[in-house]
Design a protein around this nucleic acid. Sequence first.
DNA 1: GTTTTTA
DNA 2: TAAAAACAACGCCAA
DNA 3: TTGGCG
Length: 840
Amino acid sequence: MPRRASGQTTKTTKARATSSRKSADPLAAYDAKRNFSATPEPRGKRAARKHALRYVIQRHDASHLHYDFRLELDGTLRSWALPKQPSPDVSRPRLAVQVEDHPLAYADFEGDIPAGNYGAGHVDIWDSGVWIPDGNASRDYAHGKLSFTLQGQRLSGHWTLVRTEKPARQPQWLLIHRHDDGHASPHAEPPTAKPATSRKSSVKPPDEMRPMLATLVDQAPSSEGWHAELKLDGYRVLIRIAGSDIRVFTRSGQDWTHRFQPAVAALRERGLPNAWLDGEAVVTNAHGLPDFQALQRAFDEDTQSAIVIYVFDLPWCNGQDLRDAPLHERQTRLASVFEGNETDAVRVLQPVAGDLGSLWHGACEAGLEGIMVKRDDSTYVDGRSDAWRKLKCSQRQEFVVVGFTEPSGSRQGFGALLLGYYDDDGETLRYAGKVGTGFDTEALLRMRKQLDAVETPRPALSPAPRPGGRALVHWVRPMLIAEVRFAEWTRDGHVRQAAFHAMRTDKPAKEIRREIRRETHRNGAVNSSKEMPSMPKAASTARSKSSALSVKITHGERVMDTHSGVTKVELAEYYDAVSQWMLPHLADRPVAVLRAPEGIGGEMFFQKHAAKTITGVRMLDTSLDPDHEPLMQIDDSRALVGAVQMGSVEFHTWNARSDLIERPDRVIFDLDPGKGVTFAQIVEGAQLIRGLLDELGLKAFVKTSGGRGLHVVTPLARRHEWDFAKGFAEAVAKHMAHVFPDRFTATMGPKHRVGKCFIDYLRNYRGATTVCAYSARAREGMAVSMPIHWEELSDLPGADAWTVRNALDRLTALKQDPWAEYEEASQQRVTKKMLDRLGD
DNA sequence: GTTTTTA
DNA sequence: TAAAAACAACGCCAA
DNA sequence: TTGGCG
Ligand SMILES: [Mn+2]
Ligand SMILES: [Mn+2]
């Protein structure tokens, strides 16, 4: 309020601001936050520089574990809080939040800050040393860009701190490790010494063989040069054959020979050449499918004869290191080695050629875990590689058990396991949510014993997770590993719809990481140029279909509707394609959206105002809806797709256009079936309403709602007041209910409409919305609200007959817009005479 | 899904 | 660039 | 006045 800003107020404000800025002691903020009779931290005191500039990084296990990075400058310690460790070897920016200056003496502080004090928690010196600024550090600090060299216990090299533009109460900086010139980069592992190239079978295989691992991806490569194998649900094993000395190792190198006696005996009996075999040990269940829990039972009960090892690779054979040979050659060698030598306990896994997408789909239909996809010419490398990829049917991975909850009700053992995984540094545990289904009572009781044995009073994570619900939480040492199947990762890194699968013991807990599905190009990220000329048909179709949408869709693979399987990107493509039909009904008027960012099974909310900017969506003048954020308007396909990117599924429009908001341009009768009403009755109801409107001299149009009912739309000249339009709709509805009391009701409330059509006239007041023509509905099946000819009604199977999947087929086949005469009817007026007739 | 807040 | 929380509608009828 | 509805 400008008028109230008196001269006096202005003066006071200015004086206060000046005094606070002039308080030159940079440690004032430090002192103000601390009570020095209660904390062991040193009192603020500036000091003259008398040595090289020091720096320190303190690991501070406060409410949030963080690292305080402090540089000695101008007699104090300039300080930043790093949410993550600075990584010594990666040239990757780290966030550094500027915090208050600390006294120089703080550089030597280690210990506990007592509870109740500022920053309560344990402080350790994580790194310390000296730093050498590149230029004038005081000036550069003020300027927001500081470059320097660190010489410390842990860190060294050249670093830069840059202040970002982002406005924030505490300035945000980035700490970047610059690549140093002539810096000795960590050298690659020396290649394993090749054995003498003798063809004599007496040459022993290398003592160790590290398994080659696949990269998790979410799209099948469709190009030539790849093949598939079934992904088996068992234990990965590497078998070393050295004469009669045959040993079986797990992927971490543990010797598990004793668990595979029948297989080992069978191999020994066949007199195979010296070799390393790579394979998967499985037990099939009653359905003939590999079953991990059955495998565990076989181990537990020592019924090893049920175990089958499927071998699929041969990295070393008969004196030759085959790791650099192409995979198809190793497979040929493997087949010839086992020619006539397959046994019940050891078999060769057959590679499968064909369309990888359909193989993946087929494997999932068959109940398998997924497929492996491998380059035909893949070498055998130690560790993770892009030449082998895995495509899973459902998300599934191992987690570290960090705690559990008490059971409630009749549940025994425990309620849920609290899950975690290690960050890339292999040190920090992250909470990943909980899993409470998939256990039988026997497992609950057995696992409770294991959990009790490793219980600990303090959580292994910081900050301690606070799982929902009020069940008591127990913490355990992070040693046990659970494999869990889940629908997807939530945005805050927790599992959604998790179900327990099995406990695993073949991996150390510290190796448990969050598995990221790598995004790949449809034709493969590592392809060489040779496959460029002939693009397979599937790939080019997919390419043209996923045409350039005007807005980038993130998480396009998210399934919005589990029933139909429609994904977010499919929905965006639907709206993009339908926009030419939809925009005439959507543009120029206020619109509200129903958003379902996690799909229609998750939390949904209605949004009427543009709280944040949505790409392309227009914000209307706030005078249209005072005391609120601006109303939204969608005028083009870019805004439509932009709204989908924000999770919008449904679009609901006003009955007036924004430029003359007080004059509605249509009336809508929303027909909803009551309990026990068939769609045929709704159709008759719509036809009866049409008959009445026709008698009054008004043209009407009909569309499906996409749910269970129909919408009858009457265009109106923009001359009537809202109250008048609503009054007309009410009069029509009540007239129908009066004339056909056993067919219609105009009264809200489910008990009024049993066996009847409810005519909802309340879609017609100022601000009321109805789902827009061609909008999808956030319901199972993702039907759309489809405009139709009156003549089509009698053959229509239901209000949800047209969906996101089939609507465009209809539209491209249509010869004429079923609502072609809508424009002609747009000057219709409701007269006093009509209202009089309805009153009869 | 984006913005804001905090170490 | 880190993690987590906050936030995303509302008028009208029926009772 | 509240609750449910769309
Ligand atoms: Mn701190
Ligand atoms: Mn309806």
